[in-house]
């Protein structure tokens, strides 16, 4: 209990200074945001988010819908820039590099993203996985073939599709399509992978497969997952952040967030008293 209090105090101090919230057990940080504000036109969607995402781990972001967790995720690879009239203020560092200074397509190659609804392109399975490579300038046939196979293997999809690589991606089931999208994101070998509620449209069996996959992937890739499903966060995440009304309320090891949260709001949320 005493550690809790001290964490709370630390956090309070941290938030005032705008120093990123970190989990108690120190690891190196892949992505660090400092005092990040975000606006949709005049509406302020994120209020001074300071958070550091640990390398080689799974970080889950939870919170009621509209709390800003997906918006936050979309700042990490600057996907928000596709929406007009949006604006981000503050600093984001990717491996201590200013994220806003990185060339956009290079950044997105380094920080991949998988979306809520699987969105395979209307192309063959092979062409889907090869897309990112081709866009980034790899045209060598042998390299493509090799990386496509490797990516599909990493996404645990290879055995299911190896005989129909040139069929339409739409011939796959919903869960397979989502794993194809993960394979597609993995093909460019990203350092971090952002997952935006990747299982919300899937059945429990397909969800279990994706979760298993996430646990495998974290060895080679830092993962940030937004989920509305608290059990999922508890199952796959090493660290969990709780968002409420555009603010980061608490960020810590998943165990602490779910068992002994420091903040009243977090406790209310994880015990199901609201949201």
């Amino acid at each position: 209990m005493s550690t809790n209090v001290s964490t709370l105090q630390n956090l309070a101090i941290d938030m005032q200074k705008g120093v990123p919230m970190k989990p108690a057990a120190e690891t190196s940080a892949k992505l660090v945001t400092t005092d990040l504000n975000f606006y949709y036109g005049k509406f302020k969607a994120l209020h001074g988010i300071s958070l550091s995402v640990p390398t080689g781990a799974v970080t889950a972001l939870i919170g009621p819908s509209g709390c800003g967790k997906s918006t936050f995720l979309r700042t990490l690879n600057r996907m928000y820039e596709t929406v007009p009239l949006t604006r981000a203020e503050g600093a984001i560092l990717l491996d201590n590099e200013d994220l806003f200074a990185i060339e956009l397509s290079a950044l997105r190659r380094r920080v991949g993203m998988v979306f809520q609804r699987s969105n395979p392109f209307p192309k063959s399975i092979f062409d889907n996985v090869a897309y990112g490579l081709r866009v980034n300038g790899f045209a060598n046939k042998a390299t493509l073939q090799e990386s496509v196979e490797q990516s599909l293997r990493r996404a645990a999809l290879w055995d299911e599709v190896k005989d129909k690589l040139h069929e339409s991606a739409y011939s796959l089931s919903g869960g397979q399509q989502q794993r194809l999208c993960i394979a597609r994101a993995l093909a460019v070998n990203p350092e971090a992978l952002l997952l935006d509620e990747p299982c919300s449209a899937l059945d429990p069996i397909a969800t279990a497969k994706i979760e298993e996959l996430i646990l495998h992937l974290k060895r080679t890739c830092t993962i940030v997952i937004v989920t509305h499903n608290m059990q999922q966060a508890a199952r796959v995440a090493d660290y969990t952040g709780f968002f409420l009304l555009g603010k980061l309320i608490e960020f810590n090891a998943t165990k602490i967030i779910f068992q002994t949260p420091a903040q009243k709001e977090t406790e209310d949320y994880v015990t199901g008293r609201f949201g």
């Binding site: 300038g137 790899f138 390299t143 090799e146 990386s147 293997r153 990493r154 070998n189 495998h216 080679t220």
Partner: peptide, 27 residues
Amino acid sequence: MATPVAELPAAPSVRRAGSFFWGLHGG
């Protein structure tokens, strides 16, 4: 299942050989 990560060659600096179009802000 944990396949070693593929070592990708660094992305070539020229996106497409001789393509002026793609050179300007990626087109």
